[in-house]
Computed example of a mutant assay.
Amino acid sequence: MSSQLYFQLITPLIFLVFAMGFGLIYRYTSDQDSARYFAISYLFGAIAFVLDICRSLIPGIIDNMVSNLAYMLSAGLFSVALMAHYRRKKPWAVLSIIGLVALCTSYYFMLIDDDMAVRALVLNFFGSLLLGYPVIALRGMKRRPIDRLIYWVVAFTVVQFQLRTIIVLMIEGSTLSEETYSGSLSAVTFQLLTSVSALLMALALFAMFGMEIVLKLRRNSETDILTGLLNRRGVEAKLPEFENALANGVKSHGVLVFDIDHFKEVNDTFGHSAGDEVLVACANLLKELKVEQSIVSRVGGEEFNVVLYNVDENTAKLVAEYACSAFSNLTHPAIDNKVVTVSIGVALWDVDASFAEATRKADTALYRAKSGGRNRVVVARTKIVQFQTRGAERRAS
Results as ranks from 00 to 15, higher is better:
165 T>Q: 03
247 A>Y: 06
184 S>N: 08
235 V>W: 03
222 E>L: 12
286 L>W: 00
183 G>N: 01
236 E>S: 13
202 A>T: 04
197 S>A: 15
237 A>Y: 05
237 A>W: 03
280 V>Y: 12
284 N>V: 04
253 H>F: 15
290 K>N: 15
182 S>R: 09
210 G>F: 13
186 S>F: 15
169 L>N: 04
202 A>P: 00
285 L>I: 08
194 T>D: 03
209 F>M: 10
273 S>M: 09
277 E>P: 00
279 L>P: 08
278 V>Q: 04
214 V>L: 10
227 T>M: 10
236 E>N: 14
208 M>G: 02
157 T>G: 10
216 K>C: 13
222 E>T: 10
198 A>C: 14
162 Q>W: 14
208 M>V: 03
168 V>Q: 02
166 I>V: 15
239 L>Y: 04
163 L>K: 00
294 S>Q: 06
259 D>Y: 04
228 G>N: 09
219 R>S: 12
239 L>W: 07
288 E>G: 10
223 T>S: 08
284 N>H: 07
222 E>N: 13
161 F>D: 08
290 K>E: 15
249 G>S: 02
198 A>Y: 13
291 V>S: 09
211 M>H: 04
229 L>S: 13
268 D>A: 12
180 T>M: 01
274 A>M: 05
285 L>D: 09
262 H>Q: 07
178 E>M: 03
194 T>M: 02
218 R>N: 12
280 V>K: 15
169 L>R: 04
287 K>F: 03
258 F>N: 01
205 L>S: 12
161 F>R: 09
191 Q>R: 09
177 S>T: 13
186 S>H: 14
260 I>H: 01
204 A>W: 00
182 S>A: 14
239 L>R: 05
218 R>V: 04
208 M>N: 09
215 L>H: 12
270 F>N: 07
188 V>A: 06
223 T>C: 08
254 G>P: 03
189 T>E: 07
265 E>D: 14
265 E>N: 13
250 V>Q: 01
175 T>G: 00
240 P>V: 10
276 D>N: 11
170 M>I: 00
205 L>H: 01
184 S>P: 01
271 G>A: 03
237 A>T: 12
183 G>S: 01
284 N>L: 06
179 E>M: 06
214 V>T: 11
230 L>F: 12
260 I>V: 13
171 I>L: 15
256 L>P: 03
215 L>M: 06
178 E>Y: 00
282 C>R: 03
202 A>R: 02
186 S>M: 15
255 V>I: 10
294 S>M: 09
248 N>G: 00
170 M>A: 10
289 L>H: 09
285 L>A: 11
198 A>I: 06
281 A>M: 12
188 V>Y: 11
196 V>G: 03
217 L>Q: 13
220 N>E: 14
188 V>E: 01
267 N>P: 15
223 T>Q: 14
165 T>I: 07
193 L>W: 00
248 N>T: 05
203 L>H: 09
161 F>H: 10
